[in-house]
Nucleic acid binder design. Structure first.
Length: 818
RNA sequence: GCCGGGGUGGCGAAACGGUAUACGCAGGGGACUUAAAAUCCCCCGGGCUUCGGCCCUUGUGGGUUCGAAUCCCACCCCCGGCACCA
C-alpha cells in the first residue's frame, strides 16, 4: 500500500492533489475516439464567462458549481458527460477596460484568461480543458464570420440606414436590448438617435417560430415568460384611412390597431414625427409648425421621448383622412407619443377608449365620442376618462349592440370588402442590429465595391483578421477605429477586382456567444465550424444553466441562429437547448453585492481558508439553487463542520466496522439515497445536502463507530458537491479508479425505506392531543383503542360523542366530537 | 398598468391538504482544557401553567374542509420581466 498521507483533513493539500490527478489521468478529458462514439453522451453546458481583470466573482462560481454538480451527478449515474468551458472575451466591456488601464486588449485578454483558468481549476469544475473556446482567437472568429456569410447568403442579413441608439459616452451603437429605459445599460448615459448604415439580422422573420417553439422547451418559466414578453405578439388589424388630398391621387394611411371594434370612435389620426407621409399630408399653412416639431423630436433623446408621464404634445398637419367606417373627415396630427418603430408608425386615435388618445384629445380639445358601453352605461353616457374595457358597441352604425370582440371581427370583415382592412399579427421584436463601430470584435466579412455593392469575403479567405491597432479609441465620427487604418481596409473587390474598401464595423459580441455551444465538441475541427458527426452526437445541449439576465439577449439570439442554421441546411435541429435552468442571485447579508458597496465576496480568499469543497457545499446549501440565497459569512461553518465530521467518520479506515449496518442506520441510509437521488436532478441541492447532514448525524449519534457500509455510499452522494474529499475518501476506502469513473451512484432498496414503527398523530377536532408510537400498518380499530387510552385524548372524549373518525394510515387519527 | 416569482423563528431556510419551524447559522448552558481554539453533549417561535398541559403563531382579511403555510376570493408589501407597443 502506498504511503498514506496524514489522517488530518487538509483541504488545500488534498484538493491540489486531486486536481493534479484529474489532469494527469485525463479524468475529465475526452479522447478523440470517445468524443466520436460515446456510449451515453450528456452535454452539460454553462454560460461561459467574460474574463474580467478582477477574476471570477461568486456569481460565476455559484452558477458553475450548480452546473458542475449536475454534470457530476449525471456522470455518477453512468452518463458520459461533456462539460466544456470557454471565454467570451470580445466586446465593449474588455475594450473599455483596456482603454482605461492603457493596455492593448490583445495583451490584456490572455492574462485574464490565464487567471480565470487557474480559478476555474481551483474550484474543482469537471471541465474538459482539451476543448475550450476563446472567441477572440482567429480560429474561432473565423467561423463567427462564416456564420455572418451564411446568413448574408440566406437573405437574413441586410444593410440599411436606420435610426439607431447611439451612446455618446461609449461612442457606439447599442442594440435595443442594451438600452434600458432610454439609458445605456453599461454607463447609464442617455441614448441619442443617429442615422447610420448598419447590418441587421432579420430575427423578426422568426418571431412567430421563436414564440411557438417556447411551448415545447423544458426551460425555466421565468425565462420563457421573459422571451414571450420580449417577442410581444399582439393580434389586431391593419386599417387603411384614405388621405383627402387636394390632388386626384389619393394615398392611404395604414394603421395597426388591436381595437378595430372602436374604429367608429376614431376622430383623428396621429403619425409619428418621422413618418414618411408627413410631408405629403402637411398643408402649406402648417408646414413651418410641422417642420419645427419634427426637428425638435429628432433632436430629443430617447429617454425624454419615451417618458410616459410627460404631457402629450403634437401639431396639426393641416391634412385630413376619411374614417373608413363613419366616412367622416378627420384631421391628421403628428405627435411623439406615436413611435415609428412599432406597427406602421401611425395610429387611428380613439380618445374615448384609449388612455393616451384621451389625454391628447383633452389637451387639444378634440371630440371624445363613446363607441363602447359596459353594463352601467349607454350610448350617451359621458366619458370622463378613457374606457378601455369590453362591452357593447354603440354609436357604431349597424354594429350597435354587438360585443367588442365579435364586433371587431365583423367590422374588419366589412372593411375588408373594400380593401380597407385586414387582420394582422404584430410583434414588438425588432431586427437584430449587429454592427458595432468599435475595434474589439470580429470584422464583418464584407467588401464594399462601388460597382458591385457589398460583396461577401470568399469563405476560403476567412478569417478577416483583426489587425493590431494601437490607437483603438473610438471617436465621435460614428465609424469604427478600423476606418482609420487605410492599409487594412483598402482591398480589391472579390467579384470584379476593382479597388474596394473593407467593411470597417465589427460585429456584436452576442454574435460570438450566439453559437459557441456548437463549437465546443468540434473545437479541434479546422475545416468546419462544427463537425457534422460530432454535432449529431452531442447536440442539442442536454442541460444549460445560466443567469436570467441573458433571457432575452443571448438565449434568444442563440435560438435564432440555430433556427437559421437549421433552415440553411447546416443543422438538423432547430432548438439548441433542450433544457434550460436559470439560477438565482446571491446576495450578501441581505444586500446586493457590488464593487461600489465594497461587499463582494472574494472567492480566492474563502477557498484559501476553507477549501473549494466547503465553499461549493456552502453555496449549494444557502438556498434553493433556482432562487439564489443570502451569503452570510458565518454560514460556511455548517458545511465546514460537516466535511470535518464526514472525514473523521471514515478516516482512519482501519477504524471502521466491517460488520453489517445497523438496521436503524441502514433505513436512514436508504431514505437518504432515495431523497438525494430524487432531488438532485431537480437542482434541489439545499434539501439534498440537509438530508445528508441528517444522515451523518444518525451515523455518528452518541459517538457510535460507523460501519464501512454506512459511510461508503455517503461518500458517493457527496461527490457531486465536494469532488476532492470524495475522491480522497474513495481512494482510502480502497478504490483504484476515480470515483467518477464508472457509475458508482448507490441504489436504494424500497423495502428498506419503511419504518417499522411510525408516529401517529391523534387529533380531536383537528388539534393534536397526543402522538402514538405504533407499528407500521396499524388498523383504525387498534389505533382507536390506543388513542382512547391516552389521558389527554380521553378527557376530550368524556362528555362528548365521537361523530366522525378520520384515519390516515400510519399518519393521523382525527376524532371529530360534537 | 400588464405578466411572472415570493412573503414561515433572531437569521438562511424545510414542510404529497394531515404532528409547522427539518437542516444549518447565530445565541445560551455544560463536558474536555492551566487557558484559548478545536471537538463533543444539551437548550433554543411567543404567552400562560397547578408542570398534567393550555392558548397563540406561516404578510392582512374572508372562505372551502374533520383538518389549510399549502386550495379559493379580496387586499398589502418585496423581487424580476414588459411598458406612450396603438
Amino acid at each position: 500500500m502506498a504511503e498514506q498521507a496524514s489522517d488530518r483533513y487538509d483541504a488545500g493539500q488534498l484538493e491540489e492533489k486531486w486536481q493534479r490527478e484529474w489532469d494527469e489521468r485525463g479524468t475529465n478529458t475526452f479522447s478523440e475516439e470517445r468524443m466520436r462514439s460515446p456510449s451515453d453522451p450528456y452535454y452539460n453546458l454553462m454560460m461561459f464567462p467574460y474574463p474580467s481583470a478582477e477574476g471570477l466573482h461568486v456569481g460565476n462560481i455559484y452558477a458553475f458549481t450548480g452546473a458542475d454538480v449536475h454534470g457530476r451527478y449525471q456522470r455518477l449515474r453512468g452518463r458520459e458527460v461533456f462539460e466544456p468551458m470557454g471565454f467570451d472575451a470580445f466586446g465593449i466591456h474588455s475594450e473599455n477596460f483596456a482603454l482605461k488601464v492603457g493596455v492593448h486588449p490583445m495583451d490584456l485578454i490572455p492574462a485574464n484568461v490565464a487567471n480565470f483558468t487557474r480559478q476555474l481549476r481551483r474550484m474543482g469544475g469537471m471541465f474538459d480543458w482539451n476543448r475550450t473556446v476563446d472567441t477572440t482567437t482567429p480560429d474561432y472568429y473565423r467561423w463567427t464570420q462564416w456564420l455572418f456569410l451564411q446568413l448574408f447568403k440566406g437573405g437574413l442579413a441586410e444593410r440599411k440606414e436606420a435610426p439607431v441608439n447611439w451612446c455618446p459616452s461609449c461612442m457606439t451603437v447599442l442594440a435595443n436590448e442594451q438600452v434600458i429605459a432610454g439609458l445605456c445599460e453599461r454607463c447609464d448615459t442617455p441614448v441619442e438617435q443617429r442615422h447610420i448604415a448598419q447590418w441587421f439580422f432579420k430575427i423578426s422573420d422568426y418571431a412567430q417560430r421563436l414564440l411557438s417553439n417556447l411551448e415545447g422547451l423544458d426551460w425555466s418559466a421565468t425565462t420563457r415568460k421573459a422571451q414571450e414578453n420580449w417577442i410581444g405578439r399582439s393580434e389586431g388589424a391593419l386599417l387603411r384611412f384614405p388621405v383627402l388630398g387636394e390632388g386626384s391621387d389619393e394615398s392611404q394611411l395604414e394603421v395597426y390597431t388591436t381595437r378595430p371594434d372602436t374604429v367608429f370612435g376614431a376622430t383623428y389620426m396621429v403619425l409619428a414625427p418621422e413618418h414618411p407621409l408627413v410631408p405629403e399630408v402637411t398643408s402649406p399653412e402648417q408646414r413651418e409648425a410641422v417642420e419645427e416639431y419634427r426637428a425638435q423630436a429628432s433632436r430629443m433623446d430617447l429617454v425624454a421621448r419615451r417618458k410616459v408621464e410627460q404631457s402629450k404634445t403634437g401639431v396639426f398637419t393641416g391634412g385630413h383622412c376619411r374614417n373608413p367606417a363613419t366616412g367622416e373627415r378627420i384631421p391628421i396630427w403628428i405627435a411623439d407619443y406615436v413611435l415609428m418603430d412599432y406597427g406602421t408608425g401611425a395610429i387611428m386615435a380613439v380618445p374615448g377608449h384609449d388612455e393616451r388618445d384621451f389625454d391628447f384629445a383633452t389637451a387639444f380639445g378634440l371630440p371624445i365620442p363613446r363607441v363602447v358601453a359596459a353594463e352601467d352605461a349607454d350610448a350617451d353616457t359621458l366619458l370622463t376618462e378613457a374606457f378601455t374595457g369590453s362591452g357593447r358597441l354603440v354609436n357604431s352604425g349597424r354594429f350597435d349592440g354587438m360585443d367588442t370582440e365579435s364586433g371587431g371581427r365583423a367590422i374588419v370583415d366589412w372593411l375588408a370588402e373594400r380593401a380597407l382592412a385586414e387582420p394582422r399579427i404584430n410583434f414588438r421584436l425588432h431586427d437584430w442590429c449587429i454592427s458595432r463601430q468599435r475595434y474589439w470584435g470580429p470584422p464583418i466579412p464584407i467588401v464594399h465595391c462601388d460597382a458591385c455593392g457589398p460583396v461577401p469575403v470568399p469563405e476560403e479567405e476567412l478569417p478577416v483578421v483583426l489587425p493590431r491597432v494601437d490607437d483603438f479609441k473610438p471617436d465621435d465620427s460614428g465609424v469604427s477605429p478600423l476606418a482609420r487604418v487605410e492599409d487594412w481596409y483598402r482591398t480589391s473587390c472579390p467579384e470584379c477586382g476593382a479597388e474596394a474598401r473593407r467593411e470597417t464595423d465589427v460585429s456584436d459580441t452576442f454574435l460570438d456567444s450566439g453559437w459557441y455551444f456548437l463549437r465546443y465538441p468540434s473545437a479541434h475541427s479546422d475545416d468546419a465550424p462544427f463537425d457534422p458527426d460530432l454535432t449529431r452526437t452531442w447536440l442539442p445541449v442536454d442541460c444549460y444553466i445560466g443567469g436570467n439576465e441573458h433571457a432575452v439577449l443571448h438565449l434568444l439570439y442563440s435560438r435564432f441562429l440555430t433556427m437559421a442554421l437549421h433552415d440553411l441546411g447546416h443543422l438538423d435541429f432547430e432548438e439548441p437547448f433542450t433544457k434550460f435552468r436559470a439560477h438565482g442571485l446571491i446576495v450578501r447579508e441581505g444586500a446586493k453585492m457590488s464593487k461600489s458597496r465594497g461587499n463582494v465576496v472574494i472567492p480566492d480568499a474563502i477557498i484559501e481558508r476553507h477549501g473549494a469543497d466547503s465553499f461549493r457545499l456552502y453555496l449549494m446549501f444557502l438556498g434553493p439553487f433556482e432562487e439564489g440565497g443570502d451569503y452570510r459569512d458565518q454560514g460556511i461553518q455548517g458545511p465546514v463542520g460537516f466535511l470535518k465530521r464526514l472525514w473523521s467518520s471514515v478516516v482512519p479506515v482501519e477504524g471502521l466496522r466491517e460488520s453489517d449496518p445497523d438496521p436503524e442506520v441502514e433505513r436512514k441510509l436508504h431514505q437518504t439515497i432515495e431523497q438525494v437521488g430524487r432531488q438532485l436532478p431537480g437542482l434541489q441541492y439545499n434539501t439534498s445536502i440537509a438530508a445528508m447532514m441528517e444522515y451523518l448525524n444518525v451515523v455518528r449519534a452518541e459517538g457510535r463507530t460507523p460501519a464501512r457500509s454506512e459511510v461508503e455510499p455517503l461518500v458517493v452522494l457527496i461527490a457531486p458537491f465536494c469532488p476532492h474529499i470524495a475522491e480522497e475518501l474513495w481512494a482510502r476506502l480502497g478504490h483504484e479508479e476515480s470515483i467518477f469513473e464508472g457509475a458508482n451512484w448507490p441504489d436504494f432498496d424500497p423495502a428498506k425505506l419503511q419504518e417499522e414503527v411510525v408516529t401517529l398523530a391523534v387529533q380531536v377536532n383537528g388539534k393534536v392531543r397526543a402522538t402514538l408510537e405504533v407499528p407500521l400498518g396499524i388498523t383504525e380499530e387498534a389505533a382507536m383503542q390506543r388513542a382512547k387510552e391516552e389521558p389527554n385524548v380521553a378527557r376530550y372524549l368524556d362528555e362528548a360523542q365521537v361523530r366522525r373518525v378520520i384515519f390516515v394510515p400510519d399518519r393521523l387519527l382525527n376524532l371529530v366530537v360534537a
